[in-house]
Write a protein that binds this DNA or RNA. Structure first.
Length: 949
RNA sequence: GCGGGGGUAGCCGAGCAGGACAAAGGCGCAGGACUUAAGAUCCUGUUCCGCAGGGAUACGUGGGUUCGAAUCCCACCCCCCGCACCA
């Protein structure tokens, strides 16, 4: 048995020792490929591995294709997650500790000792970046590790600062108000990684419209809503009688909201001074009357227990025509007699096809009768969605009448605000707590820093860039254009987390997506910067290196970096940039990737802008998404042990095209393993063989050569077009099938020798996908150099031979035809098979009409040979779709007579005068007539004989 | 609702600048070879009908264009993703 693990580690070691993937600028074409650096908060799994593996396959292929390839890697450390993890471990958070015990155990036995160190975020980052880099080596990735860095290094900080200075100079760094998720208890912003379950169930900030309903005493009940347009249909307010409310002074107004909402408002109106004047029971408010602010109608305040004081303002305005909760609550009150039957009538304000009174209709349809029914949530969702997209405001809505809600919502909101009857209230999209259990609310930051992506010049440049880049799959190009259009303001700094200090306000830290946009440029020079003191990495330094600005001597003097080194750094950047290919996954399109494009477009000149983007879909396992919570992830670190690296790489390449999801199924993996082993065995079987001399080539040898070089040519073309899957299937499944067939037609010994003829070239094309085993066999064949550094085999067109392939096709179809006859006629033991090739006149006609359009074929044929049988013949030709090709059928059959006789176990007679079945006339060119003589059948039962049953 | 991607045999999944497509490849299943046996491997078959290489039906549904459609056009149904202030 082949010891794949041994082979893997042997070649990884030798590649490393020979430093063959360290890329230096040399003459000739270059190829600079990047794949996003991994975030080092934990181990990677086989799903992540797909993207890196494909990146490596491309890198390896490009090397074979004659490019000087740079494939670098670094580690992403910035942001809050790693910090949050370290904090959680420091405060002995059980779930996190369990999780990280598991993670460490993948790699190490001394779990506790390492976990202890994880109180320090740096230790987390270091541990995982170290382990991941080992994983990558174990996957056989052809990475130049000299250029490795991580995103918290001073060098990187300097680089990111430079980026922000460039953006600042372009006038796109701005400051303003911004709502964020926030923990009052911790006094700080919280991101999805700080929030309990935030990674799987994201918490976002939702802007509500807070509408002021006037009470008699001049104060307001504040009702928060997501549907301000429904104000026209309000019939009453809802208050929870057993909840506590507060009377607040907000600027010069008095507001009444739930106690919880009052607390939240303090963080949302940081500028205004807010004071709690009094606390009131909900029940005290019930039955008051308020003025609806748009038309001044008086509506009552009623009790409802579906109201949650911790959602919104704890005051809800009621639109029973369009909100299922409101409808049911009104019905409830009527039923219990608390409200007269006629007291509250729904006011319909939205016309929508298929509904009369939407809220009532859906409650009846779903059979909802109580305000505690959980399905009310579904009903609400359905109605909201339907009305938003399809609903039109009716005549009760004044200036907004006749317009679709989707088109008018924002205008209604703005109108209410400018009228002074509404304000903004932010709420989280769901109730959330931090990992330490503190409540998450929305706070408004007054001086948030943004990147403003709205500038016209910027979007233009980005669109132009996208238009001329290569995308594979192509569909993502259009999507990227759209994303660029959506992009607007984006917060780019936070108060906490690891990362680079914001250069214009050192209290802020640059957010972790904004610092990962143009870092590919740093790869080109990272190894050289190791010799440069951090203080020297000034704006002028990077301006010179990346933009060629300034004078070498002056920059050298100012930075203290000697001129030669400076020039060398500049030259290396010039050599490698632009990034020829960014390979990543679609979830990055709308964040990393669009920033990558935008920031390049803003900062670099045209000739340094990225050239191509390829994306591969994700990987699922046994038909299901992989996730921590499902517990169905396989760590990348285990691939070698569980499956073997080459097998995994092959599976990634062959299971799906980039645009499709890879389904990791054990059953399929096993099947592929068997095929893979068979291929290896095929190669091993030929290692000690001598290649067949070309002068000894017979028909089948030429056939195999023809097949091979045709496939080789196709595969190289597919590889170049990133169609790895097609290339892999062709060189793997299909080619192996050809060899199998060859062996069937010849014999094992000859196959061994012929495979030796093909092996060198075959191994080279397969090596990007399964590098370890190819390297092993390559060396066992006596090659001294690494296959990883080989060049693509020459496509030897002299062996590409259509005729030989056609001849074999002809033979295959003849065998099929005879088999079919034997089957249909139930002939078990044929005695003699007569084969009749078509008469010469049929060839003549076929030749004459091959290029004639279908409707004229008969006419043309009649000119050659005026006969009834000609018409019959042409009709059959047209029906059977015979394509004209000159083959000497008789010669082929004569040559293969022995084979055919062996296959059918009887004598074969070609073109005999003896034609008892009168078959010859049925013969078509390339489709000879067949007559089978057989011994009397004796075993055939008489089907309908009742006596025999 | 808008935008994008899909719906192919028992399953997965190619094909989709119209013709050789009953539809690649894989899995599964059945039969055979090899084997003491199992496994592996290799052959054959796998819509229905047919005692001579044929025919019928089929690529979500229904129409259309064409000598010819899984492939093009139209309508409809269903599934997935994005959009309803997160860019």
């Amino acid at each position: 048995m082949v010891d794949y693990k041994e082979i893997e580690s042997k070649w990884q070691r030798r590649w490393h020792e020979a430093r063959i993937f360290d890329a230096e600028p040399v003459e000739g074409k270059k190829f600079f490929i990047t794949v996003p650096y991994p975030y080092t908060s934990g181990p990677l799994h086989i799903g992540h591995g797909r993207t890196y593996t494909i990146g490596d396959i491309i890198a390896r292929f490009k090397r074979l294709d004659g490019y000087n390839v740079l494939f670098p890697m670094a580690f992403h450390v910035t942001g809050t997650p790693i910090l949050a993890i370290a904090d959680s471990i420091a405060r002995r958070d059980k779930a996190v500790i369990e999780q990280y015990r598991g993670y460490i155990a993948i790699y190490e036995e001394r779990v506790d000792a390492i976990l202890e160190r994880f109180k320090d975020p740096k230790a987390v980052a270091n541990f995982f970046s170290e382990r991941i880099s080992e994983d990558f080596n174990r996957m056989g990735y052809s990475i130049d590790w000299r250029r490795r860095f991580n995103t918290t290094e001073p060098m990187y900080n300097r680089f990111v600062e430079w980026q922000f200075k460039k953006l600042y100079d372009k006038g796109v760094i701005k400051k303003g108000k911004y709502p964020i998720t926030y923990s009052i208890e911790d006094g700080s912003a919280v991101g999805e990684d700080d929030i309990e379950g935030g990674d799987t169930d994201k918490v976002s900030v939702i802007e509500h419209t807070a509408i002021k309903f006037g009470l008699e005493d001049g104060s307001y009940l504040i009702a928060a809503t997501l549907r301000p347009e429904t104000i026209f249909g309000v019939t009453n307010l809802w208050i929870r009688p057993d909840a506590r409310y507060v009377r607040l002074r907000v600027c010069d107004e008095e507001w009444i909201v739930s106690r919880e909402a009052g607390e939240k408002l303090r963080y949302q109106k940081a500028g205004a001074d807010i004071e709690v004047l009094a606390e009131i029971a909900g029940s005290e408010i019930v039955n008051m009357r308020v003025k609806e602010p748009v038309s001044g109608r008086e509506v009552p305040v009623l009790p409802a227990n579906f109201v949650d004081p911790d959602v919104g303002t704890g005051v809800v305005y009621s639109v029973p025509a369009h909100a299922p909760y409101d409808y049911i609550a009104v019905e409830d009150l009527k039923r219990t007699g608390e409200l007269p039957d006629t007291a509250i009538e729904p006011i319909k304000i939205i016309d929508i096809e298929g509904y009369d009174l939407p809220a009532r209709d859906i409650c009846i349809e779903m059979g909802i009768e109580s305000q505690t029914d959980e399905r009310l949530e579904d009903a609400t969702q359905t109605i909201y969605k339907e009305e938003f997209y399809r609903g039109v405001l009716n005549e009760r809505c004044g200036r907004f009448a006749g317009i679709k809600i989707a088109d008018i919502k924002d205008e209604v909101k703005d109108w209410l605000r400018t009228q002074g009857v509404a304000d903004v209230f932010y709420e989280t999209s769901r109730k959330a707590v931090t990992r330490s259990g503190a409540k998450v609310v929305v706070a408004v930051l007054e001086d948030q820093w943004f990147i403003d992506y709205r500038a016209g010049w910027w979007k233009d440049r980005a669109h132009k860039l996208v238009s001329r880049m290569t995308f594979y799959p192509e569909k993502y190009r259009a999507y990227m254009h759209e994303i660029i259009d959506w992009l607007a303001l984006r917060p780019c700094a936070r108060k906490r987390g690891l990362g680079t200090r914001f250069p214009f306000d050192r209290n802020w830290i640059i957010e972790s997506l904004s610092d990962s946009t143009i870092y590919m440029a740093l790869y080109t020079i990272a190894h050289l910067l190791r010799d440069v003191p951090v203080e020297s990495l000034t704006e002028a330094f990077f301006d010179y290196v990346f933009l060629g600005r300034g004078d070498v001597a002056a920059v050298a003097r100012d930075t203290g970096v000697n001129e030669d080194l400076l020039n060398r750094i500049r030259a290396e950047f010039e050599y490698w940039y632009p990034n020829d290919l960014r390979h990543t996954a679609p979830p990055h399109l709308s964040n990393h990737l669009v920033f990558f494009l935008m920031h390049h477009a803003a900062i670099f000149p045209e000739d340094k802008l990225p050239r191509a983007i390829t994306l591969n879909e994700l990987m699922i396992r046994e038909g299901k998404k992989m996730s921590k919570s499902r517990g169905n992830v396989i760590p990348l670190a285990k691939v070698s042990e569980l499956y073997g690296v080459d097998l995994y790489r092959l599976y990634c390449a062959i299971n799906a095209d980039f645009g499709a999801v890879v389904n990791w199924r054990e059953e399929d993996v096993d099947a592929l393993r068997r095929k893979f082993n068979a291929l290896v065995a095929l190669f091993e079987d030929s290692i000690d063989e001598y290649a067949l001399n070309e002068s000894e080539f017979m028909h089948m040898d030429r056939w195999l050569m023809a097949r091979f070089y045709r496939r080789l040519k196709e595969s190289i073309e597919r590889f170049r077009a990133f169609r790895l899957r097609d290339a892999a299937i062709n060189m793997f499944f299909e080619m192996v099938n050809d060899v199998r067939y060859y062996e069937q037609r010849t014999d094992v010994a000859r196959r061994r020798r012929m495979v030796r003829n093909l092996m060198d070239a075959w191994l080279v094309v397969l090596s990007p996908i399964i590098p370890h085993i190819c390297e092993e066999i390559w060396h066992r064949l006596g090659h001294e150099r690494f296959i990883s550094l080989a060049k693509l085999p020459e496509v030897r067109t002299e062996f590409m031979d259509v005729r030989v392939e056609r001849e074999e096709e002809y033979l295959i179809s003849l065998v099929d035809d005879i088999n079919e006859i034997l089957h249909v006629a139930r002939i078990e033991r044929p005695k003699r098979i007569y084969v009749y090739t078509a008469e010469p006149w049929k060839y003549e006609i076929l030749r004459a009409i091959k290029d004639v359009p279908a409707r004229d074929k008969i006419k043309a044929a009649m000119q050659v040979r005026k006969d009834e049988t000609t018409v019959e013949f042409v009709k059959r030709v047209m029906k059977s779709n015979i394509e004209y090709f000159e083959l000497s059928e008789g010669a082929i059959m004569a040559r293969e007579r022995e084979y055919l006789e062996r296959v059918f176990g009887c004598e074969l007679v070609i073109d005999s005068e003896y034609d008892p079945g009168d078959k010859r006339r049925a013969a078509l060119p390339l489709k000879p007539a067949i007559y089978v003589e057989f011994a009397t059948q004796h075993s055939t039962a008489v089907p309908n004989d009742p006596a025999s049953g």
